[in-house]
Design a protein around this nucleic acid. Structure first.
Length: 776
DNA sequence: TTAGGGTAAGTTTTT
DNA sequence: CTTACCCTAA
């Protein structure tokens, strides 16, 4: 159930509150705390505080619904919820119900300890996690008698909460920003820097790698000057340093922030001595993933009377490349912190846990299973990934016939590339599947354009959004060109104090052939803020008509109906966000909603992955984190792939790959199968099983070698052959442009010719522009 | 300006 | 191993 539906139900109930039945409906009850079906446990925490029973009794009197829910939890979970320590770290083992504990902690603090929800900051890393927490709390609100909608203003991702802190902080101007700043995502950031480089004729090498270079530059600020700037084959420094410095100033001029700026700037305003923003409680999810900036944000939000409750699992730390580090986790733990454990895993069979245990690096003794022995874990040796894909297609068909739904089956691998062969084979074999692809706003051009348009209207200094809104190749009113911005910037009068929006519109109207449509559209842009003035959330979808999107979305385009649908859904979503998170006025609430979309909220609209769809899931190990499946197949556990081999690997990175393998294994509920290949295709993978498999005792794994399929190999399309049709190796041929040459390579789909003057050229076999040459 | 030699980098992707 | 692209030599 999504937030919108819950909210609608909540509203419905509000209106007919008087004759509402006192018992909650059963469908709600079962959906509220899904992790709790195996609550009873033989394992007990060593010490149980004296007033422990008392607390439960107290809850029973205060809120019987919460009591019913909490009494189902195990004692470790209850202890973590009842703790009132200033700093608490809950080390949660994999599959031990940490989100359940987190949600109950919030409910306990609110309903029993009377902490208002808006005095609690609940910080997560993903929108998905934030939404799940909000949904569960909403559902609880619906069950209990509370009639008002909960205030989630400090619930959200670090970035989203940071944005809201900044937008509402009086000291923001000290940083050179105003409260209507907009957010640029990673792609927009790259464009932002490249445009500066273009405009100022900066010498920038490896332009396509500019994002990586800037990141590396900032990470290496402590290193020697030229070490930070050089990349690849560069011998001399380029203007990277200058670019970063100008970028820093330009972001302020344009009133835009990138993702990192949100956290960094929030830290700056929070650490001002006059800052008075301090939540009563700070609750952190996936604490092990925090980097230093995020820890700093937690600490800056806290004051002497703030209590911190963090939940995390060091064994699932797989994002150190985003700046998190085990030392952060342990430093926090050592510093006057009460530690709790959640050692009981409800997810996997004992066989699976027994194997996974050998890969655990921290708190080894603390993982306890609750389930039956189950099927043994298999280690299977395939010839290569193609053979494996055929084998799995077969196995999955059999499983499905036996009644296992496709959605309960997942195939996990280390790199995205590995999914291709499964897609090809499953497609051919008619097995329904879905691949998790990274969704960015750029993947949905109409929504990307719309966000840029709305950003441009609300932040009239955001030159990049303004330009992209007006000069978009699909939906813009003016044809984009890579010199327009440069020319505009060069000719603009520095003493002109008007906004960039006004200036660029005027400039474009005189320097391009713009017609009435342009005038009409840009006037609408300038006036959107005024239009919004006296509107309510319910009128936000009217923006569709305001901008005449039925014509501006290009009705002749093949994407038109889809675009209209997406845009309407987007505006609807914005409307709901404004309704749920209304703060001071419609304008700032609207901007908050648009910012939320920049922070990945669009995934709600554009998402193609439905966890409940009847499809086999093909996932990278990273994207499988947090998910679970009855049947899990880990593909390609070869050395070099797990751990993935690349230059200068550190011991820490080898450890992280191990944790990743652990995460992959523990996704399985009932059945786990691990494979490696005799002849792996990647340049970096060796024909031997992963080193991590050596750490697992042989008798815990059921080893098997799969016979090679003798059917025609699917990759034979690319294999070289000697002859096809009239063509043979070494044959003399003639090409109208390249002249004469000889055939140097033949495959089922292509012929490669080596021309005397032009070297090797490849041609598709169905469209050969060459002729045979008769040798006399 | 162009051709060809030389060499680092390559993965994962919460926002 | 392949790719991208810097760098240098004409």
């Amino acid at each position: 159930m999504d937030l919108k539906k819950i909210y609608q139900k909540l509203r419905e109930r509000k209106t007919k509150k008087s004759n509402r039945p006192s018992t909650p409906s059963s469908d709600l009850e079962s959906s509220i705390f899904p992790d709790n079906d195996h609550a009873e446990s033989r394992i007990k925490p060593e010490e149980v505080s004296e007033d422990y029973r008392g607390i439960l009794e107290k809850i029973k009197l205060r809120n019987s619904i919460l009591y019913e829910s909490i009494k189902e939890l195990n004692e470790y979970q209850q202890k973590a919820i009842f703790t009132n320590n200033k700093k608490t770290l809950v080390s949660a083992m994999v599959g031990s119900g940490k989100t359940t504990v987190l949600v109950h902690k919030v409910l306990y603090l609110h309903f029993i300890k009377n902490i208002p929800l808006n005095k609690m900051a609940v910080l997560t890393f993903t929108n998905k996690a934030a939404n799940e927490i909000k949904e569960r709390i909403m559902t609880f609100y619906m069950q209990s008698n509370d009639s008002c909608a909960p205030d989630f203003s400090l619930f959200g991702t670090f970035h989203s909460v940071a944005r809201n802190i900044l937008a509402n902080n009086h000291h923001l101007t000290k940083l050179g920003y105003t409260s209507n700043f907009t957010i640029m995502d990673e792609n927009e950031k790259k464009e932002f820097y490249l445009r500066i480089a273009d405009e100022l004729y900066l010498n920038i090498k490896y332009r396509n790698k500019i994002d990586k270079r800037i990141e590396r530059y900032i990470d290496n600020l402590s290193r020697a000057e030229n070490k930070r700037v050089l990349y690849g084959n560069m011998k001399n420094e380029d203007d990277l340093k200058k670019l970063v410095e100008i970028g820093y100033e330009r972001k302020k001029q344009n009133n835009v922030m990138d993702f990192d700026d949100l956290i960094n700037n929030a830290n700056l305003v929070l650490s001002y001595p006059e800052n008075s923003f301090h939540p009563k409680w700070i609750v952190v999810d996936e604490f092990q993933d925090c980097n230093l900036m995020q820890i700093e944000m937690i600490m800056n939000m806290a004051n002497d009377s703030t209590l911190i409750f963090a939940v995390g699992d060091p064994n699932q730390l797989i994002y150190t490349w985003r700046g998190s580090d085990l030392s952060i986790f342990y430093d926090f733990k050592l510093n006057e912190c009460k530690e709790h454990h959640l050692p009981i895993n409800y997810r996997s069979t004992s066989n699976i846990l027994d194997v996974a245990k050998f890969l655990i690096s921290y708190d080894t003794k603390e993982l306890h299973g609750t389930r039956e022995l189950g099927a043994p874990v298999s280690l299977i040796n395939h010839y290569d990934s193609n053979q494996e894909a055929r084998y799995l297609a077969n196995s999955i068909k059999i499983l499905n016939k036996e009644g296992v739904p496709f959605r309960e089956i997942a195939i996990l691998f280390r790199t995205k590339k590995q999914s291709q062969i499964f897609e090809t084979v499953f497609e051919r074999e008619g097995i329904p599947f879905e691949v998790t692809t990274r969704q960015t706003l750029q993947n949905i051009p109409s929504l990307h354009w719309l966000t840029q348009l709305l950003k441009a209207c609300l932040n009239k200094q955001d030159l990049n959004s303004i330009y992209d809104a007006i000069c978009n190749e699909n939906y813009g009113i003016i044809e984009p060109s890579n010199v327009l911005l440069k020319k505009y910037k060069a000719s603009v009068d520095k003493s002109d104090v008007r906004t960039e929006l006004e200036k660029l519109i005027e400039w474009l109207s005189t320097n391009t052939n713009s017609g009435n449509d342009f005038l009409n559209f840009t006037t609408k842009m300038l006036q959107l803020e005024d239009w919004l003035e006296n509107k309510t959330y319910a009128e936000i979808p009217n923006i569709f008509n305001y901008f005449e999107l039925s014509t501006n979305l290009r009705p002749t385009s093949i994407n038109y109906s889809k675009d209209v649908e997406l845009v309407k859904k987007f505006l609807e979503e914005v409307s709901i966000y404004v309704q749920l998170n209304y703060d001071t006025d419609i304008k700032s609430s609207f901007l908050a909603a648009i910012s939320e979309m920049s922070l990945g909220g669009h995934q709600i609209i554009g998402k193609t992955i439905d966890p409940n769809s009847e499809k086999v899931k093909l996932l990278t190990m990273h994207s499988a984190k947090g998910l679970e499946f009855r049947y899990v197949f880990i593909s390609g556990a070869n050395n070099g792939l797990i751990p993935l081999r690349y230059a200068n690997m550190t011991a820490e990175q080898i450890e992280e790959e191990k944790r990743l393998f652990f995460v992959a294994m523990t996704r399985a509920k009932d059945y786990l199968e691990i494979s490696y290949h005799t002849e792996p295709e990647g340049w970096n993978s060796y024909p031997e099983p992963s080193i991590y498999l050596d750490e697992i005792p042989k008798d815990l794994l059921k080893s098997k070698q799969v016979e090679k399929f003798i059917e025609e190999d699917i990759k034979s399309d690319n294999k070289t052959i000697d002859k096809v049709g009239q063509w043979y190796m070494g044959q003399f041929v003639k090409h109208p442009k390249y002249g004469t040459g000889t055939i140097s390579k033949i495959s089922k789909t292509n012929i490669v010719c080596d021309f005397e003057k032009f070297g090797e050229k490849s041609f598709a076999i169905n469209f050969l522009p060459i002729l045979p040459v008769e040798i006399v």
